[in-house]
Simulated scan of single mutants.
Amino acid sequence: MDKLYHTALDDSHGAKYAILPGDPGRVEAIAKYLDDPKEIGHNREYLTYLGKLEGENVLVMSTGMGGPSTAIGVEELYMTGVRNFVRVGTCGAMKLDIVGGDVIIATGAIKLDGTPDEYVPKEFPAVADFDLTEKLVKASRDLGYTTHTGIVECKDSFYGQHNPDRMPVGYMLKNKWEAYKMANCLASEMESSTLFTLGSVLRARTACVLSVVWNQERQKAGMSNPENHDVDSAIKVAIEGIRQDILNNK
């Protein structure tokens, strides 16, 4: 096949698995956990490395921030033969018992973002693949990380969350935020619901592991609020979860 327009990839990579950070700056750091990693593409926000894990080809590709670029990246990876997608990223926690440095593995997402609306009706849920998610949970606990599982909020506007009073619809953003907290939402990020929705539509397996940066609700409550900008824990969980999936399917 010809190289695709956005990702500049074709199907010669032979990978069925892809690890998806948002930030291109994290791609090489993730690829170092693979055997024989090498860059195979870089176009727009899509930086791609190819390596091996337990003898299986695995891609690491950045998606950029938000749903639209994530959807394009996942669509084109699927066209080239990828069938298993694991997002590795960061989030801000909402529950008071979650602190910076904890690991969150999302089982589903609130579709506050707009991209899924161009794939499915609004009431259609955004849910991770159970089997792949279960492997991430086991990997995280085996690695000794404080691990949380549950629903995350997926939004389009970073500053809508952090400065809602400046927004004409700030009243709505704040009311929804409080409702999500009451419904036991764990954290907020920007790509998971698009990934999960595409998984359902494409019949692909999707999962998401997040490293918690901080917790604005703990800060508002006057509680200790350590910040953590090291995503190594989420990376290791993704690598070990995929490793176990590969071994179990051999």
Rank of each mutant, 00 (worst) to 15 (best):
A128T: 00
A18Q: 06
L47D: 07
V169Y: 14
L4V: 07
D245Y: 05
G92K: 13
T7H: 09
I151G: 03
S69H: 05
V86M: 05
V137I: 14
L50I: 04
S233C: 08
R205E: 07
V201S: 04
A139T: 00
R26G: 06
N175C: 05
A238R: 01
D142Q: 11
F196Y: 14
L202Y: 07
D230P: 07
A179N: 11
T80E: 04
M182A: 15
D35A: 00
G64V: 09
A234Q: 04
K135L: 09
V58P: 00
A18W: 06
S224N: 13
M223S: 02
G22T: 08
Q219W: 09
V127E: 04
G81A: 08
A204P: 00
Q161V: 11
K52I: 00
K138A: 11
A8I: 09
E75R: 10
T48N: 10
R141C: 04
A71Y: 02
R203L: 07
D156C: 06
I235H: 02
W214C: 14
A126F: 10
Y145E: 06
P121L: 08
S157T: 10
V169M: 12
M94L: 15
E240H: 08
L53A: 04
A31D: 08
A221G: 05
T70K: 06
A221N: 10
L53E: 02
C154P: 07
E28T: 11
K138Y: 07
V27W: 01
H13T: 03
I151E: 04
L143W: 01
V237R: 01
Q161E: 14
L136P: 01
Q219A: 14
E217L: 08
M61Q: 13
Q216N: 12
D36N: 15
D245G: 00
I246D: 02
D36E: 15
S224F: 10
D142E: 14
L20A: 08
I72D: 06
Y46E: 12
A221E: 13
